[in-house]
Amino acid sequence: MSALIELHDLRKKFRRTMAVDGLTLSVPEGAVTAFLGPNGAGKSTTIRSMLNLYRPDGGTATVLGCDSRKLGPQQFVNIGYVAESMELPLWMTVAQFLDYCRPLYPQWDTDFEKRLMQQFELPPKTKLRALSRGMRMKAALLSSLAYRPKLVVLDEPFSGLDPLVRDEFIRGLLELTEEEGWTVFVSSHDIEEVQRLADRIAIINRGRLALEEDAEALQARFRAVEVVMPDGAKAPPQVPSTWLHLEQAGRTVRFVDTRYTDGIALEKQIHQHLPEVITHSAHAMSLREIFVALARAYRLEGTVTGA
């Protein structure tokens, strides 16, 4: 599977702050890659650097086979970009906005545009300034999809949307992505929504890649574990590095196992390190729970060796 985005040792600095620090990442064609990270991790800076909105200070970013610093009209007609910070011509109606965008893209599909208008329930005669934030984001998405791009880049597209609009937005994007086979690169704080979209997960921390993995594989190897001990029993100070956030409250010990393979292997490991165990249980974790566990570990330790 070829990659539509290739980042190698990418660096971007603002004065004394290294926003992106040697980031290497590959985004495969035909997949939805979720780009996650704590606030200030460098997600938006990475996206802007790879789209030639910022000039990298080092390393390379290749998009659609072209160096990001040389991206031009030939590449941008194949890239759909929607960001929470983008400005729209609010004085235009939805129809006027689309009339303005249409001539810029030779492959603009008017039939597809009409279908998206109906699907997103956009009022063509209403000025953009009169629309809710959610409807404006839909208009921006329509203007970025109607020309059927090869690559769709979304930077916090769900920020500030109410739950109903967010659900409609996600459902529409899911259907279209499956139909069109788009490559989607999406950065978002709405982890639960991203979970419905993503085939792959990439997590950035302090400008560096902390994790890159198939979503199913990631969720398969994480478990929330609860162990019941006898009265007075204490968990040892040294436990496997793959156990995160071990905490004890009374008889109950809880931790996150980042290398879960099967129940038998976990049981052996628990008996080895917590030999006084009475019972234990392990539960699958949502992507949001996994992200929170990792973000907490990044904050406490800087790097998670084993995760």
Rank of each mutant, 00 (worst) to 15 (best):
A220D: 12
E276A: 14
T258R: 01
G302I: 10
Q248V: 04
L90A: 04
I201F: 04
E213Q: 15
Q96R: 12
A139N: 05
F158S: 07
E87S: 12
P28Q: 07
M92K: 02
P123R: 07
K114P: 01
M86P: 02
I5S: 03
L246S: 04
S187T: 00
D109N: 15
Q219D: 06
F97T: 03
Q118L: 12
G80H: 06
P236N: 07
L173C: 08
A297L: 03
M86C: 05
F120Y: 11
P73N: 09
L164H: 09
L141Q: 03
G181M: 09
C101P: 00
R206F: 05
A284L: 09
S2C: 04
F158E: 03
F185W: 13
D109V: 08
R48A: 08
S26C: 09
I47R: 01
A130R: 13
T60E: 14
P106S: 13
R16F: 12
M86Y: 08
Q238V: 15
C101G: 00
A3R: 04
L90N: 03
A31P: 00
A130H: 14
P230A: 11
H271C: 10
L90P: 01
I201D: 01
T183D: 04
A265D: 14
W91S: 15
A307N: 03
R208C: 05
S26F: 10
G59C: 04
K43V: 02
L98N: 07
R296P: 00
D109R: 05
L10W: 09
E6K: 06
A130Y: 13
Q119L: 14
D190P: 00
L211P: 00
E84K: 00
M92F: 15
E6H: 08
V228G: 00
R196L: 15
A220F: 11
L161K: 00
L71V: 12
